[in-house]
Nucleic acid binder design. Sequence first.
DNA 1: ATTGTAAGTTAACAGCGTTTACATCCATCT
DNA 2: AGATGGATGTAAACGCTGTTAACTTACAAT
Lengths: 200, 200
Amino acid sequence: MKKRNSRYHHGHLAESLLDAVDEIASQFGIEAVTLRGCAKRIGVSPASAFRHYADKRALLTVFATRALNQLADAMEVAMLQAQEEGGDALHAVCMAYVRFALTKPAFFRAMWREEMIYSRDADYLAATERLAGYLQEGFVKTIADEDPCDFSPQELLAWSAVHGLACLFVDGPVAREKEREDKLQLTDTVLRQLLPVFSQ
Amino acid sequence: MKKRNSRYHHGHLAESLLDAVDEIASQFGIEAVTLRGCAKRIGVSPASAFRHYADKRALLTVFATRALNQLADAMEVAMLQAQEEGGDALHAVCMAYVRFALTKPAFFRAMWREEMIYSRDADYLAATERLAGYLQEGFVKTIADEDPCDFSPQELLAWSAVHGLACLFVDGPVAREKEREDKLQLTDTVLRQLLPVFSQ
DNA sequence: ATTGTAAGTTAACAGCGTTTACATCCATCT
DNA sequence: AGATGGATGTAAACGCTGTTAACTTACAAT
């Protein structure tokens, strides 16, 4: 399969670099991610990264895109499961959103750090749209959506609430000392406050 | 008043550094803020900053605290004005929140960038509590607050919604191409969706 | 076999945060 | 008024960063 005689060519450097970002960000936070550090972890020269990414920002953009898709995956799973069990799909998707932010805070931060990524990148934008799609999908059966691309006020409120809660948990002063499960419980309670908005 | 004979001692270096952060962040974003850059802008040696701040993170912490208090000031003004005019104080405070984020996005980002500041700093925490206070104040007349330090689900929902909307506008893909006024109009619409939550 | 190209290396650059040793000024005490 | 000590600024250096340019290696197609 792979020829390992010569160590000169790595073979999967682009992906390995992403994995290195993954590991360093998970351990030490996204601000601690360094091109040289990633290269060293893989056992490769610092300059080699530039054969695969235009600059550090491009690498972080791909990483953010990957993280977005991981979040979207989790939301999809939650949605399908809720639909199977006849539960509230929107609620399940929102809970998955916050759960991901609490489980992988560095990934969640990287997703939205506009100054660190190329936020106009096509793949990145596609990932955000996929994400938004799962949030909207909870509404299609209750509210007639005017424009599939744009958001209804209810949809935007749902996204804002869940995104704001995740951000306040991750970077803000809310429930800083509490356990993960307590935060999820709190999330559930807060989200239930939204029910009268959607069932009027 | 001030002796300007000798330029050796600056006199207001600590504040001037904060102003430099202010200007550079406003022009080029918070990620472009550099200790050396701030020092050069003031006309002072790079090392001088360390007489007043333990490290860069400490400087950014004070800057974030100042920004938090500026936001809290804006919220206070909005609240008082609404109370005078008999308007909805909570709505006014929330609108001020988003308006500040849109007007000074770099400041808003700096406030919540946990990895860039010492978020356990006493002054910083006091500023966040002051901020939270104005959001809670909109509730004191409608909902009996159990614990003034903790948040009720309604209060947390309000903060989450307004914070999430601000974050999505500033760093996210929502309404990226729209004008400031359109975003504020959208904010108003979204916030009005919350009314049934508080008036049941 | 030759050769072209993709993918790696090495060495260097300027700029960064930070520290250490030194210089200067100001306030205070005789 | 003169000495002195602490606060405040400077200069030079450290290792680290992202990035580039010139070079080398390995594979793939002719």
